[in-house]
Amino acid sequence: MLTVPVRRVGEGERRSVERLLDLDPYAAAPVAERVAAHGLSWWRGEGRVLGYGSRRNLESICWLGGNLTPVLATPPAVAAYAEQLSGEPRICSSIVGHADAVLGLWERLAARWGPARDVRPNQPLLATGAAPQPAADPDVRRVRVDEIDQLFPAAVAMYTEEVGVSPLAEDGGRSYRRRVTELVRAGRAYARFVDGQVVFKAELAVVTRRTAQIQGVWVDPQWRGRGIATGAMAAVVRDALAHVAPTVSLYVNDFNLPARRVYQRCGFRPVGTLATILF
């Protein structure tokens, strides 16, 4: 039995937490965004942050909410988090983070939390701080609030294709539509419209002072193979670098070779490898 050096981290350790998040600006971006928005006080956050190490030497943290995300988790930290979490029911819908930590957690938690709906063990994490060489598609722009009804079906199609389940299943899509609306209102949703229909879309799903993380990239199936994705992504990256954050990042499934080629053409370079366990 391990002696578990894992504890709930509170606002008094926020500086130590932010120091760790700065050491891992791309993989830990979703956690950094939540900490910046809500702090570490339990009554303000959407989840809780577990810490590994002493108060004088916080070595790693683990976000537990809708997702479970280990940050800078060494093998001893992974083992300690797993022992702590194995006594709790699963509340997260996914485990996502650096591949070695995520797969180590899953190896220890699968018997209690399984089965997983999908295991994606190799997701290249990419980033760029330079404007793309390809020309930006001038028709790709930020989505207006009055265009949410046009964007939403494309967002549902993307989610269903990428995640494998429909976001309409749980509550008729109300929570997912709220999320889409939040992104549009924040100026973080981009699209190209043709005759009122969305043929390309992407969002800055996570924004920190270090990076803007693109998610939800989607091309209408009828427009795939026409070469629109590179220019569209170039437009999103250019706008994000000019107005949002000093770098742009994303992660992609290793088997999605067409998307990986687009990202490479737009100047993205590998900065790590993620893994995701989906429930």
Rank of each mutant, 00 (worst) to 15 (best):
Q222R: 15
W223E: 12
W223N: 12
W223H: 15
R224P: 09
R224M: 12
G225P: 01
G225E: 01
G225D: 04
R226W: 06
R226S: 08
G227S: 08
G227E: 06
I228S: 00
I228K: 03
A229T: 06
A229C: 09
T230F: 00
T230D: 02
T230K: 04
T230A: 08
T230C: 07
T230N: 07
G231Q: 02
G231H: 02
A232L: 07
A232F: 08
M233R: 02
M233C: 08
M233T: 04
A234E: 03
A234K: 05
A235Y: 02
A235E: 02
A235T: 01
V236G: 01
V236E: 02
V237S: 01
R238P: 04
R238S: 15
R238Y: 09
R238N: 13
D239L: 05
D239F: 02
A240C: 07
A240M: 06
L241T: 07
A242E: 15
A242K: 12
A242H: 08
H243D: 14
H243I: 11
H243G: 15
H243R: 15
A245G: 10
P246F: 13
P246Y: 12
P246M: 11
P246V: 09
T247R: 06
T247G: 06
T247N: 09
T247P: 04
V248P: 01
V248A: 08
L250G: 10
L250T: 05
Y251M: 07
Y251S: 03
Y251C: 07
V252K: 07
N253V: 14
N253F: 14
N253Y: 14
D254S: 14
D254W: 12
F255Q: 11
F255C: 13
F255G: 12
N256L: 02
N256Y: 01
N256D: 06
N256W: 00
L257W: 11
L257N: 12
